[in-house]
Design a protein around this nucleic acid. Structure first.
Length: 258
DNA sequence: CCGGATGTTCACCT
DNA sequence: GAGGTGAACATCCG
């Protein structure tokens, strides 16, 4: 998915439907609905009005006159409002336009709709999701909070940053890019970082999110084109190394990430 | 044809 | 309880 950057783009798009009233709910896929049946979501959301949109990590929240609706996008989910997508090209997501991939939709009184299109069904929707199961959003985490998260575990730094219950919003690409920019080894025990390193990491995290947001997404990092066998570090020309960290494919520069 | 991919969850180990 | 692994979801791409 959509990492935090893409979900924030979706949130801004979803703002278009604030003030509208749901006339019809399309929930054809029971598996896509978490925590209740699709039938319940249809019955509960119909007739409610959208009050506001929020985001915590990769979770998009829509407050309504009824329950809060939570939307998750998995790796391949996209959001379309009134037929238009916020992001036309999403890596690993087809540009094809198959209505069978519309896993959930709200249609509104007076027209228009909000559609969650997800070929792989890795996302989902949920009424009143447990927001507190997610850690502090990566865009707002304080140095002190980040230090506490990292100090409380000897897991690899990257695994800790990917743990949505600790810091919410960072995905595989964003973490690799951030650690590469910060010069930190993804495999280092997270509780080994010094205070200065944590502060530097937080600064780099924020600037990386801002930079990639401007460029157009999580896949626009400097490291992206080198995530392949034979890839070269754009900073110092060293051969990149690859490893499984936190269960995810990881690319890093052994020459300058320590 | 095979393997892996911006993610999450769950079962099953140690 | 912590932490690791592999499977599952379904499609595309190299």
């Amino acid at each position: 998915m959509p990492e935090l950057i893409e979900v924030e783009t979706y949130r801004a798009l979803a703002d278009e439907v604030v003030g509208r009233t749901v006339s019809e709910v399309h929930a054809p896929d029971d598996w896509f609905v978490k925590g209740s049946t699709a039938e319940e979501v249809v019955a509960t959301m119909t007739g409610e009005s959208i009050l506001a949109t929020r985001r915590r990590g990769k979770l998009l929240l829509m407050d309504t006159t009824g329950p809060t609706l939570g939307l998750r996008f998995g790796m391949t989910g996209r959001l379309l409002v009134d037929g238009a997508a916020a992001i036309s090209k999403l890596e690993y997501s087809s540009d094809r336009n198959d209505p069978a991939w519309d896993r959930f939709a709200l249609r509104f009184v007076g027209g228009g709709d909000l559609v969650l299109r997800d070929p792989r069904r890795l996302g989902g929707v949920e009424l009143d999701p447990q927001e507190d199961a997610l850690g502090i959003d990566a865009t707002t985490v304080s140095a002190q909070q980040l230090a506490a998260v990292l100090a409380s575990s000897a897991r690899p730094l990257k695994a800790r940053l990917l743990d949505q219950a600790r810091v919410a919003g960072l995905g595989n690409l964003l973490v690799d890019e951030t650690l590469w920019r910060a010069g930190l080894d993804p495999q280092r025990a997270s509780d080994e970082l010094t205070v200065a390193e944590v502060k530097s990491l937080r600064r780099t995290m924020r600037s990386t999110i801002r930079a990639l947001t401007r460029r157009g997404g999580s896949h626009t990092g400097d490291l992206q084109s080198e995530r392949r066998p034979g890839g070269i570090c754009p900073k110092d020309g060293a051969g990149l190394a690859t490893a499984k960290v936190g269960g995810r494919t990881t690319w890093f520069c052994p020459a300058h990430q320590h």
